[in-house]
Design a protein around this nucleic acid. Structure first.
Lengths: 243, 243
DNA sequence: CGCGTTCTTGACTGCTTTCAAAGATGGTGG
DNA sequence: CCACCATCTTTGAAAGCAGTCAAGAACGCG
């Protein structure tokens, strides 16, 4: 793990992910391609959306990582969720006008407007499924924090993040970028950075992970999975199940 | 706290809550009244929606408490969120066909179909705001589990639940029904029932709460609030902010 | 090459869990 | 009306996981 910004993600992350979620036709793909000409960049650490700010439009992440966070009065921070390339951000179902959490760029982030979807189109289905997946991940985060110990939280989160990256066509079978510092991981998993450090060391000792300079590797993903009873999200075109 | 089912909630909980969220006109109120003739009852402990089950329709809770939960392979359970009278359940934004968690009745629960809202109507706004509030509470739950200790989690959750009940016109200034057992509270807050018991005892000793047979009382709500830096959700007709 | 950030390490504290068992409590049937 | 039962609450002692504090090493950047 390091502070190195994630390599420029394949610009295809957005159409790849949405295509797998909804099945995009030529019109949808053209709309996405058009939207990706109207990009906005946020340097790492920049706050992209302030908590309570009005949400003007739904946007999509073209490349880079970001996260939603909340700061408590004692200065501690909880990272609610991590946003990856291909994810939608600020999606207001109808006209929810206010962001419940602030969004901060973790690496340099490129976003574009999320094109308006024709009702019934593949893009429309993709948006709906993406929202459902987001909610699923939020409930998974609750379960992780409420019921898993440190090693379980780390392992479960890494597995989920690996799957999410692969859905967007990023990362390999057993390798993927991991630009979070140990302190960020701690803030996401409800731990301290010291304990995250010790937990990662234990996982390295047990040959569960290899981590170096922003790249994470699973030497044996299956072993990790049944260590934490990991339930991947199955995405089936326009359906979703946690088998 | 006890096992006693919550008293039959005022049947007005649903129109009260949605009215405060969206401002209902005569047509909306009539639609709600009509919907409340088509009720369905779930006895306490009955599973209302299985995890992964297809969501056929959006329903509303007329009376009673329920909760969304997830069971882990080791038998432990995490309560994701509690559903109160006036809440909407199984709200699929577009056509998310699958429940990400199971829903279980905590007390005897009465539900009715959530009437279809005319776009732009008060009911439509209420649904949108309700979804936004749900998401806000989910992020609050993540923060609670990730960053607060036992007493903070209990206090924060009690305050939030009190506010939610009052939004639906239930409970008083400093008193409200609390039908959860200590074990359920533990499963919601990521603790053990033994520790919840000790925490509640400490809060009683400090005169922060009075709890007996299903009724909770705050002798001094303000003191509780600044003990945990509680941020209530302000609902302003068709807006929402966490001031 | 120097500096700031991030990662490591050690010792110590303490919150929370675990295990087990003894009281309450409320509802039920006799 | 009372005994009985299941469920829920309470208690104690001991163990463990995670947090705190502090300081040094390593890394990446300019």
């Amino acid at each position: 793990m390091s502070t190195a910004p994630a390599r420029a993600a394949a610009p295809a992350a957005l159409p790849t992910r949405l295509g797998r979620l909804g099945g995009l036709d030529a019109a949808d793909l053209a709309a996405l391609a058009r939207a990706q000409h109207d990009t906005r960049r946020s340097p790492a650490r920049r706050e992209m959306i302030a908590e309570g700010a009005a949400l003007r439009e739904r946007r999509a992440i073209v490349s880079g990582w970001a996260f939603r966070q909340r700061i408590l009065s004692d200065g501690s921070r909880q990272i609610i969720s991590v946003l990856l390339p291909g994810d939608l951000v600020g999606v207001c179902r109808h006209d929810n006008p206010v962001a419940p959490t602030s969004v901060v760029a973790l690496t340099d982030v490129v976003t574009c407007p999320a094109p308006v979807a024709t009702p019934g189109s593949g893009l429309d289905r993709a948006y709906a499924l993406s929202a459902a997946i987001d909610e699923f991940h939020l409930t998974a985060q609750v379960t992780r924090l409420g019921r898993l110990n440190a090693i379980g939280r780390v392992a479960d989160w890494l597995l989920e993040t690996h799957d999410r990256l692969r859905l967007a066509g990023l990362g390999g079978e057993e390798t993927f970028p991991m630009p979070l510092t140990q302190e960020m991981l701690a803030d996401a998993l409800g731990l301290t950075s010291v304990h995250v450090n010790r937990t990662l060391q234990a996982m390295r000792r047990d040959e569960l992970i290899h981590a170096r300079s922003g790249v994470m590797t699973f030497p044996n993903r299956a072993r990790l999975e049944d260590m934490v009873d990991y339930r991947p999200v199955r995405v089936t075109s326009n359906n979703l199940m946690s088998a």
